[in-house]
Amino acid sequence: MKQPRETHVDERTPIRERWIAQPPGASDEAVAGALLRSAAMVRPFGGKELAEVGARLRSKERFRPRPLVWQLAIAACLVLFGSALSAAVLYVLRAPTRSQQELPVAQPASKPVRHASLGTARPTAPIPPPATDPLPEPAVTPALPAPVRPSRAVAIREKLAAPVQPASASPEPTLAPVPAAGPSSLAQESRLLARALAKLRQEGDAEQALAILDEHRAEFGASGALLPEANATRIEALLRMGRYSQALALLDAQALIANGAGREMLVARAELRADKGRRVSALHDFDLLLRADAPADSVVERALYGRAVCRGKVGSWIGARNDFERYLATFPDGKFADKARAAMKQ
């Protein structure tokens, strides 16, 4: 009787260590971690994909057939096929019975041939083919029209095609193209951002910079023309204020690429992820930064050291050693050089 209760208590215990962060080993957990690590990396949904899907959402593209359509079509085919098969089987089974029932009836001697032919020809007759087509291949476009209610479909299409209406006129939200910021609003956005940057970088007042950025958000929402710049400034301000979790949350929502200003943000995200124990995600970011054509600058310096540390923590000793060696070869007087040497000695 005690066993389930103890199990129940154990099951409520918070789990802090992820399998995925376990160093390689022979234990079941380590093997599971290695397996899960392989499945953890997904292709980032970058700017290109983002734009493509956004364009599809904005376009008047007809909705794809819904799963319900398929399910109904397949169910109908199955029912028809089943009915036809049952009818055929019943027909075959009942035919001898019918002929047996007819046997005792006294028939004129002149008509035995007709009964004999009926009794034998019917059971041996080929089963009629089912009235339905074979089951459709689910990957292709269905032959059946999508049972979208015409009025609804037309309404949706019209809604998509319609120009942007004021909020009060249209209760249902439309996917309107991003309103082009006019020169005045762009100028206003620029002024706000310039103020925020001046507060942040010249006066070192991150809190005030954040307040200005909040003002920007309230004014322009997520449709501001300078939203990426505002986000980058917000992240910088949050980092300066030590609000790492918020900065990481914002960074996680960005589709970052290892180019230009994106590299700074990517390395910051990788370091924050590593700091939070999300070593696999951190390693993914570091890998992006350390491609063969990456210049030997401060970003690569941080990425190289960060990846070495992460690799060491997940038990990839050889990888960690390689990274430390590469770090010391590239940045012999770098700011992590002493730590790297100490780690190498260990």
């Binding site: 980032p44 949904f45 983002l50 899907v53 956004g54 959402l57 904005r58 939200p173 439309t174 996917l175 309107a176 193209p177 991003v178 929402g221 997520a222 449709s223 939203l227 929502a253 960005q254 589709a255």
Partner: peptide
Amino acid sequence: LEALYRAHAP
């Protein structure tokens, strides 16, 4: 929706 998409699509 556009703003929602931009903020949360990734």
